[in-house]
């Protein structure tokens, strides 16, 4: 690194430090991942806008009132909310370096996530069985795109969760694994935030329409 010697006299040459000071590994990961989440947020905003525009075009097909079962949606919301708090507990035990408890909370989070996906797929299968396929109307196309994209995010979150559990089991709670678990924490809580928008805009307001 170049050392600066600043002189008060103007005739003397002035040196500045041109090298950027060293950052520890992964110091900018959290900010970078946050910016990724914000870009993901924009994707969901576009899908919400599409649903907002097309959500009333039933093409003489089924409307939200004919299709949605709010009890099932409430159960689904509970699953995702519980998975959020259990992931929070996993982060708290991780900070205390309790590897067994961290793995247990991560496993419980995964099970709640799996329950959420199972219920959602059951709902989709039921709708498609009744003829409410994505091709039926613009409302159903935008519904399946929005809710399906969220479900796909949860699926990839689960794959990531299992990967990190294997990583943690093999290498322990190393600095890199902690960083990865914190990224997944943000991803998981972010998906819960998106789900608030989904159950409000799509399901609750759909039933009021």
């Amino acid at each position: 690194m170049t050392v600066a010697t600043v002189s008060t006299q103007s005739s003397e040459p002035v040196f500045h430090v041109i090298d950027e000071h060293a950052h520890p590994e992964g110091a900018s990961t959290m900010l970078g991942f946050w910016i990724y989440l914000m870009s993901d947020c924009l994707i969901f905003a576009m899908l919400f806008a599409t649903y907002g525009v097309l959500g009333g075009n039933y093409a003489a097909g089924p409307a939200p009132k004919d299709l949605f079962d709010l009890k099932l949606v409430a159960l689904n919301t509970t699953m995702l909310l519980l998975s959020s708090i259990t992931y929070g507990f996993a982060m708290l035990t991780m900070e205390k370096s309790k590897i067994g408890a961290t793995q247990a909370w991560l496993a419980i989070t995964g099970l709640f996530g799996l329950a959420f996906l199972g219920i959602e797929l059951t709902e989709f299968a039921h709708m498609i069985h009744e003829g409410a396929t994505p091709q039926r109307s613009a409302f159903l196309s935008s519904f399946f795109t929005l809710v399906g994209t969220h479900g796909l995010h949860v699926t990839f979150g689960l794959v990531w969760l299992v990967t990190l559990m294997v990583q943690t089991a093999r290498f322990g709670l190393t600095e890199a694994n902690r960083r990865r678990l914190m990224c997944l924490s943000m991803f998981w809580h972010f998906l819960d935030v998106v789900w608030i928008g989904v159950f409000t805009f799509v399901y609750l307001l759909g039933m009021l329409r």
């Binding site: 947020c41 924009l42 905003a45 576009m46 919400f48 806008a49 599409t50 907002g52 525009v53």
Partner: peptide
């Protein structure tokens, strides 16, 4: 960005 996109589209 989200507010502009959502309110603008709708």
């Amino acid at each position: 960005m989200v507010v502009i996109a959502l309110t603008g589209s709708l």
